[in-house]
Write a protein that binds this DNA or RNA. Structure first.
Lengths: 213, 213
DNA sequence: GAATCTATGTTTAGGCG
DNA sequence: GCGCCTAAACATAGATT
């Protein structure tokens, strides 16, 4: 049999999953290395297998990279909080420079985001933002943010609807399963297979936070 | 001129390097996501561009993953990772899993956002800075709002797509019902029978499963 | 710069030892 | 598990718009 197109969802067959994990783990690592080398970037990659084994790669020091990441996040957090430190510590020139940087970054982001991601965090962050900033901004910005929030509300309703549908379909599937035991398909595992050795996660349990496109 | 084989060394031309960075960064990110989804792995990826911009992706919580990595790296004989989020009930077979995948995707887009974007935190920064710097920030506001609108638009599209997919799943469910309740099961497991833990943290270290160079 | 195109290089699913 | 094989799927360098 020749190669099939696969869909990006959890591979059910344990063996196939492990094999794919091994292959793709190396693939991702290689890609990370290449990115680092070709583009002069710092890259850190941490992978935990379903069995809990750790694999990692980093272009330089993992600790340094993690620390750098943490600091960057922390800085952002501080800025996000109502703390006024920065007002005291920065001149207008410096702030202007930062703003320029951020604007550039945001442009880049817009480009990147065009494909697949965005959403949740943006909404959350904006909500948070709204609470944090008590009407101090000018009316134009407030109006726009309100508009944005309205859109978010709509999208959340849609999400709820989708979730409802999912629940319904789950029930349906449940019912069908109870009413008929016939199962055919590629693979059906015996539940007892799930009780493997103590080093083995049951992968079918892990409904982790995934994203497939 | 058509595509040449490239050698993995730093790209000299700045523009080409930036373009490649952008393309490959997304590529690596996608691969990381796929690995996570397909193989039920936890993946964290941190990338700093040559200009210092941060990009990251994580299949779940970046902080948790980093913390887990830190612990496993430094103390190999410490057992019993306390919390590995036990999953919700999953007893409906393939269709149910597909639906859950979709639901999860919808819910957790934020994580992909935090992976690809500079996060909503940048927005916070901008807001904060806007408040501090008097005037002359219209372009920043415009940029941000444009980004918001674009994001909303894309989110809508994505949700529509998900709804469509759910509709398809519904059809599938209908079909199954008509087929006398048979189930095209690929894998079925009962979570309650699957007890796991992970005690072999140090194994990966002994086996030299590292990619640092 | 960003988006798209496309020929080509690279990855990898599915097998097998 | 690992390594190798093949061909299909995929990623992407280079060019163009």
């Amino acid at each position: 049999m020749v190669r099939q197109k696969i869909q990006i969802k959890k591979i059910d067959n344990l063996t196939a999953r492990q094999v794919t994990f091994s292959k793709r783990r190396r693939g991702v690592c290689k890609k990370a290395q290449e990115l680092s080398t070709l583009c002069d970037a710092e890259v850190a990659l941490i992978v935990f297998s379903a069995t809990g084994k750790l694999f990692h790669y980093s272009s330089s020091s993992m600790m340094q990279l993690i620390e750098r990441h943490r600091r960057q996040s922390e800085i952002s957090d501080k800025l996000g909080q109502p703390s006024l430190q920065i007002q005291e510590n920065n001149s207008c020139g410096m702030l202007s420079k930062m703003l320029e940087d951020k604007t550039r970054e945001l442009r880049n982001c817009s480009r990147q985001l065009s494909g697949e991601d965005l959403q949740g965090l943006d909404m959350d962050e904006l909500m948070k933002l709204e609470k944090m900033v008590p009407g101090g901004l000018n009316s134009v910005v407030e109006t726009r943010n309100a508009k944005f929030l309205k859109e978010i509300s709509l999208l959340k309703k849609k999400e709820s609807k989708l979730l409802e549908e999912n629940a319904m379909l789950k029930q349906q599937a449940d019912f069908m399963q109870k009413s008929e035991g016939t199962v055919y398909g590629i693979h059906q595992s015996n539940p007892s297979e799930c009780i493997r050795n103590s080093h083995d996660y049951d992968t079918s349990l892990r409904l982790g936070l995934r994203f497939s496109n």
